[in-house]
């Protein structure tokens, strides 16, 4: 016991050493902008001015943002659109992962499919947004033409002014753009699993589905945490498609996400940098809380239990020592 501890201490310096490039790059390039953002949330900085002074009521920008109806609405939109795209996305990605990592099913053209699924992520969001806006064009557009000519609707439907339609389309684009990414992440996670586990399961006569749910999924827990957390962060910061699909989060603000809101505060007309910064910090807190919840739900129960046992053992041990002292 004592021996290993000495060893661990002697290697600890490499932990610092190998983190150094990250830390240095972060300090040089990102720390200042981050602090700057954190600070200007408490100031009167707006317009093209470069000088600012701190507000007499330090949290004024924060209370303005929290009481801002459009911001509240954008938060609701963000969650709605995220959930509408994330649930089908993770379901499909897991299904594809199950198919593509199964050793029993040798799917042909795997490589080709993996390339195809990731394609939507390669094209710039601007292009995707334009193509979809054209698809759903009104009164003339491919989707309307099909719906009308097949008699499914009588007159063209205005997808572009309907808040619900716009939300659904944005959620679909997000789903379509990101399921390939999620699938690749999950597949690469499954590839890190020790193959001996699969081999022994196969020898025991497990079916592919059993292998997937009993071995693959549990072994991918850490990567699933990554997927959930990054989707959450990415989803709550969703920006490109909602901004581009219909003019800055239209129609009627139905696709205005929190990030689009922050962007319009900072870059549109009034250049309210201070409020944009305050809104960013509020979003940061919301994301951090949601992430903490995900981490808690996905925590490794074995590990936690182990640690708790260790701690309890220690406590009992020390108590016993105290008792002896008495």
């Amino acid at each position: 016991m004592a021996k290993t501890r000495v060893k661990a201490v002697s290697y600890a310096k490499y932990g610092y050493l190998f983190s150094l490039p990250f830390i240095v790059a972060y300090l040089i390039f990102s720390l200042y902008p981050t602090l700057y953002t954190a600070v200007i949330g408490f100031t009167d900085l707006k317009g093209v001015a470069r000088n600012f002074k701190f507000l007499a009521e330090p949290f004024k920008n924060f209370s303005i943002i929290l009481n801002n109806v459009t911001f509240q609405n954008s938060l609701v939109n963000t969650f709605e659109i995220w959930i509408m795209n994330f649930i089908p996305q993770i379901a499909l990605s897991l299904l594809l992962t199950a198919w593509f990592t199964s050793r029993a099913r040798r799917i042909r053209c795997q490589g080709a499919f993996k390339v195809l699924f990731y394609l939507p992520n390669i094209i710039t969001s601007a292009t995707v947004a334009i193509l979809f806006a054209t698809m759903f064009g009104y009164p003339i557009g491919p989707i309307n033409d099909i719906l009308v000519s097949t008699g499914m609707i009588e007159a063209p439907f205005n997808f572009l002014t309907s808040p619900i339609a716009a939300k659904l389309v944005v959620a679909f684009i997000q789903f379509w753009k990101w399921y390939g990414y999620t699938t690749i992440v999950l597949i690469s996670g499954a590839l890190g699993i020790n193959p001996e586990l699969f081999e022994s399961a196969e020898i025991d006569g497990a079916r592919p589905s059993q292998i997937f749910f009993r071995i693959t999924l549990p072994c991918m827990r850490t990567i699933l945490v990554f997927t959930l957390i990054t989707s959450l962060i990415g989803g709550l910061n969703m920006f490109d498609i909602p901004k581009l699909y219909i003019m800055d989060g239209g129609p009627a603000d139905a696709t205005k996400t929190a990030s689009v809101f922050i962007y319009t505060q900072a870059f549109k007309g009034a250049y309210l940098y201070n409020r944009a910064a305050a809104a960013s910090m509020i979003m940061f807190v919301i994301i951090a809380i949601c992430s903490a919840v995900v981490f808690f739900i996905m925590r490794d129960k074995h590990e936690v239990q182990q640690k708790r046992d260790e701690r309890r053992a220690k406590r009992i041990h020390s108590k016993r020592l105290e008792g002896l002292a008495e």
Binding site: P33, T34, T37, N237, S259, M283, F284
Partner: peptide, 9 residues
């Protein structure tokens, strides 16, 4: 987790 738009400024 920090939203990127303002940081970029």
């Amino acid at each position: 987790m920090i939203p990127a738009q303002v940081i970029s400024i």
